[in-house]
């Protein structure tokens, strides 16, 4: 516990220092490089909180692609920022108030690692207990692909979960249904089979539970690419022609 806290505090201190440096520095090249470092630090902080997927995205997108694209943009602009007044009181007030509200908003959240947090009384128990999607070719229950993960998990399938009562109250007793033939659409999912189709909860959430959301995100990225093509490529081709 203490070592995690120590790493967290040092990383967050570094992140704050770099954030201040990004604001202070006048060379845009330095600012871009510092923001890349900031992203890497944040990736380490997420990793320290066991949020591997977030850390992965931060490292590849924040520190990787963003830095390259910002550097590409830099080639089209000046290398230095304009000299601005050192303290903009209006902006400082807005930022402080917004920050205070955000911190106030986190007060209602459960402590990190709190065993009574909703995620631990509901979802995690549910997911560790679920068996759908962990079948072999013959359709026999067997966590074939994920057996090592199942062994590592705190709760075994047949054990009484510490929060079993709470869980049953909330979700009903979870007995997975089987047989791919009988199911007929949206209501075919067993009660415990909401998002546990892959061992990576994040992927299940993004691709199945929030499938529409992810589809529109993909469409947004696609639209960004198409807009660039329509705006820049066509104009340049007309310019050269």
């Amino acid at each position: 516990m203490f070592d995690t806290l120590l790493v967290d505090i040092s990383l967050l201190t570094l992140a704050v220092i770099i954030a201040v440096a990004i604001v202070q520095v006048r060379s845009l090249l330095c600012a871009i490089m510092l923001s890349g470092i900031y992203s890497l630090l944040m990736a380490m902080i997420w990793q320290n909180m066991n949020a591997v997927d977030v850390a992965f995205t931060e490292a590849s997108v924040g520190a990787g692609i963003s830095t390259v694209l910002l550097l590409g943009t830099l080639l089209h602009t000046k290398r230095q920022t304009k000299q601005l007044p050192t303290v903009n009181w209006g902006a400082l007030t807005v930022v402080t108030v917004t920050g205070a509200f955000l911190i106030y908003g986190t007060l209602d959240m459960p402590d990190m690692g709190d065993p009574n947090a909703p995620i631990h009384t509901g979802r995690v128990v549910q997911q560790l207990g679920q068996r759908v999607g962990k079948v072999d070719r013959e359709g026999i229950h067997h966590p074939w692909k994920y057996s090592s993960m199942a062994e590592q998990s705190v709760f075994h399938e047949d054990d009484e979960h510490p929060w079993a009562e709470l869980y049953a109250e909330e979700y009903g007793t979870a007995e997975p249904e089987h047989g791919g033939e009988e199911h007929g659409g949206a209501h075919a999912h067993p009660t415990d089979d909401f998002m546990g189709h892959s061992p990576n909860t994040v992927t299940s959430l993004l691709a199945a539970y929030r499938g529409y959301d992810t589809m529109y995100e993909t469409a947004v990225i696609f639209t960004a690419g198409m807009s660039l093509i329509l705006l820049l490529r066509r104009r340049r081709e007309e310019g050269t022609a």
């Binding site: 759908v132 999607g133 962990k134 079948v135 070719r137 359709g139 249904e177 089987h178 047989g179 791919g180 199911h183 659409g185 949206a186 075919a188 999912h189 067993p190 089979d193 189709h197 892959s198 992927t203 299940s204 691709a207 199945a208 499938g211 529409y212 589809m215």
Partner: peptide, 20 residues
């Protein structure tokens, strides 16, 4: 739409995995 459970697979879970 996007209800992967109905895709071909040995059971609902496998179909969901295919869709994802």
């Amino acid at each position: 739409f996007l209800d992967y459970g109905v895709l071909p697979g040995v059971d609902t879970g496998a179909a969901e995995a295919l869709g994802m």
